[in-house]
C-alpha cells in the first residue's frame, strides 16, 4: 500500500450547487490515480467515509461531497483551518490506456471525473443529474454534455466509445448492459477501505469480493 494516514488542514469548503467541494492541504499524501479513493475522518463519527479524489490542485486534495447523511454532512460543515485525518489513496482506479474515452457521470458520481479528465487530456464527457440545481456541479467538468431527468445519460453514449463511468447503481447497470468492457466505479458501504472489515462485499464474477481491494473501478464483463 502506498496509502498513508495524515491529519490534513482544510483549505476551503465551497458549495457547488447542492454539493460541497472540500479542499484539503495535501501534506505528504499522494493523490494517487483517478478513481482511487480516500477515507476521510467525519467529525463526531466513529467510522471514516470513503470519497473519490475529485481534483488535485497544486498542494491540495479536493473532494466533491453530497451531504446525504451524518458523515457527509459533518464533512460539508468543515471550515478553513479545521483538521481531519485522511487515509489514502486506496483501491484500484481507472485504467488510462483507452483509445476513445468517454466519461459518463451520474449525480455525485461525477466526483472522480474532473481528475480523470485531466489525466486523459479532457476527453468528451456526459453527465446526468436529477435537477438543474444538482447540475451546477457540472462547472467542474467544462464542456461536458448534460442530461437532466427524465433524459438519461445512457441515451448520450455512442457505440465504439471506451466508457469510464461513475454514478448510481441503476445507471452503472444500464451502462454495463450497453457497453461491455466499460470501466465502472462502484460504491459499497465501507468501514475501513483497506481490506480489513469485509463490509464492502459485492458480487464480482459470481463471487462476493471486497470492493475496496478489487475495485472500486471494475470492468463490466463482455455480454
Amino acid at each position: 500500500m502506498d496509502a498513508r494516514r495524515e491529519r490534513l488542514r482544510v483549505a476551503g469548503a465551497e458549495p457547488i450547487g447542492l454539493y460541497t467541494l472540500l479542499r484539503l492541504e495535501r501534506g505528504d499524501l499522494d493523490p494517487g490515480a483517478p478513481g482511487q479513493f480516500f477515507m476521510l475522518e467525519a467529525p463526531g463519527r466513529l467510522l471514516p467515509r470513503a470519497l473519490s479524489l475529485c481534483l488535485a490542485p497544486t498542494g491540495e486534495l479536493a473532494f466533491l461531497i453530497d451531504p446525504i447523511g451524518p458523515g457527509t454532512e459533518a464533512l460539508c460543515e468543515l471550515e478553513p483551518g479545521d483538521e481531519i485525518h485522511v487515509f489514502g489513496p486506496l483501491g484500484l482506479g481507472f485504467r488510462l490506456d483507452v483509445e476513445r474515452p468517454l466519461l459518463v457521470g451520474g449525480g455525485i458520481g461525477m466526483a472522480p471525473l474532473p481528475f480523470l479528465a485531466e489525466a486523459l487530456r479532457f476527453p468528451p464527457a456526459v453527465l446526468g443529474f436529477r435537477t438543474p440545481e444538482h447540475a451546477e456541479a457540472a462547472a467542474l467538468l467544462p464542456g461536458a454534455e448534460l442530461a437532466i431527468d427524465p433524459t438519461f445519460v445512457t441515451e448520450l453514449i455512442l457505440p465504439g466509445q471506451d466508457v469510464l463511468a461513475c454514478g448510481p447503481e441503476p445507471m452503472l447497470h444500464a451502462v454495463a448492459e450497453r457497453c461491455p468492457g466499460a470501466q465502472l466505479a462502484w460504491e459499497a458501504p465501507m468501514a475501513c477501505g483497506y481490506g480489513g472489515c469485509y463490509g464492502c462485499a459485492v458480487e464480482i464474477d459470481g463471487e462476493l469480493k471486497r470492493l475496496c481491494v478489487e475495485g472500486p473501478v471494475l470492468v463490466s464483463r463482455a455480454a
Partner: peptide, 16 residues
Amino acid sequence: APPRIAETAYGMLNAI
C-alpha cells in the same frame, strides 16, 4: 448479503 455494516452511536454493527 450486503449491506453488512452499519454505524451506530459509539459503535458499529457487522453481519459479515
